[in-house]
Amino acid sequence: MTKLEILTQNLQETDDLARRVATSSFPGLVICLTGNLGAGKTRFSKAYCTALGVSKEEVNSPTFVLIQEYLGRWPEKHGSRPLTIYHFDTYRLKDLDEFCELGAEEMLSGNGICLLEWGERVAEMLPADTLYITIEATSETSRRFTFRGDGEQISNLIEQLSIAQ
């Protein structure tokens, strides 16, 4: 288990951090975002997806529709190819069955990126090498980000974040 804590002082720094996570992302990445109402999960998702070429107007709260699908573009090191990002919100789901019935398994094992708000609610369904990000509000604008995960690719990603810090 690799673990890293990063503090951001304001929204600008939070957006920068999201961009850095985006730059280090790879095909098949699953991100589980955890944090209370108002912690900034959707905000982080927006900055993350925008950094991967999704127009910022397209990224909004998936609470109502459950899954949003965006078309973006991989960074140059992954050949600037088209990228599909699945943005989930499991806040309203009752159990794993409901999650499965959304066709989630297929998306989780695909070559795109899955970003799950309240993803801890479906933890059993997430692959072993999921990137877990916990967001805690430490003041009105500052946030504590905790990155956790297993596997080589995730460890590398977390390491890159710690170097860039």
């Binding site: 109402l37 905000r43 910022k56 107007e57 909004n60 709260s61 609470t63 109502f64």
Partner: peptide, 18 residues
């Protein structure tokens, strides 16, 4: 134009929950 994050009704639901 439209919402860039939560819909108005969603805000009502979430605030009611708060």
């Amino acid at each position: 134009g439209c919402t860039i994050d939560d819909a108005a009704g969603e805000a009502f639901d979430k605030v009611a929950q708060i």
